[in-house]
């Protein structure tokens, strides 16, 4: 992959459009980035993308920004991280500055409210599409430990509303210990 102006422009434009079109914050942006960088551009592979999201999630701050920083760093070092951060932050900065001025108009406008209602359905569909693929990959891997972690994490998040950073830290610690002792057992 050649790092010319075209590459940086594409990197900026990708994060900019993704951020401009995702309603609902953090986790919505992640599937879109996956779709763009893994499936379309093929700049990052599936496993690595999940690693990047996991690490972003265990750091403080907006997940979308953190994932952008990691993706940018992975593709083009510190400068890449700078580009993707600016790309992610600019759309909300522009949109909110405008809206804050015309909030009353914005709140009452039926076109905007039905547009957003419709887009929300689209966002849900995009996430469902990505989830189907990711869940299928994990089930196909036939790794029972992964499947168990997935099920337990899902229950913890959906039913018990446990903070996602905590879920990430616990599953990472579990994975670390489990695979360490498994390997130690195999070496004996």
């Amino acid at each position: 992959m050649e790092k010319n102006i075209k590459f940086y422009w594409k990197l900026f434009l990708s994060t900019f459009t993704i951020s401009a079109f995702t309603i609902g914050g953090g986790y919505v942006i992640v599937p879109l980035m996956r779709k763009k960088f893994v499936e379309e551009l093929k700049w990052i592979d599936e496993e690595e993308m999940l690693n990047l999201v996991a690490i972003s999630q265990s750091a403080p701050g907006p997940i979308a920004v953190n994932t952008s920083i990691m993706t940018g760093y992975r593709l083009a070092g510190i400068f890449g991280a700078f580009i993707t951060t600016v790309g992610t932050v600019l759309p909300p900065l522009i949109i909110i500055t405008v809206i804050a001025k015309f909030y009353e108009v914005f709140k009452e406008n039926w076109i905007i409210s039905s547009l957003l209602l419709g887009m929300r359905a689209g966002v849900a569909a995009v996430i469902i599409d990505v989830i189907i693929k990711m869940v299928r990959d994990i089930i196909k891997s036939k790794n029972n430990v992964s499947i168990a972690i997935m099920v337990v994490a899902l229950i913890a998040a959906v039913i018990f509303n446990i903070n996602s950073a905590l879920i990430i830290i616990l599953s990472g610690a579990f994975g670390g210990f489990y695979y360490y002792f498994k390997k130690a057992g195999e070496n004996q």
Binding site: A54, I138, S146, I149, A153, L154, A157, I167, S171, G172
Partner: peptide
């Protein structure tokens, strides 16, 4: 260990 949790 992290990857399946992220999917969830």
């Amino acid at each position: 260990g992290l990857r399946p949790a992220v999917v969830s």
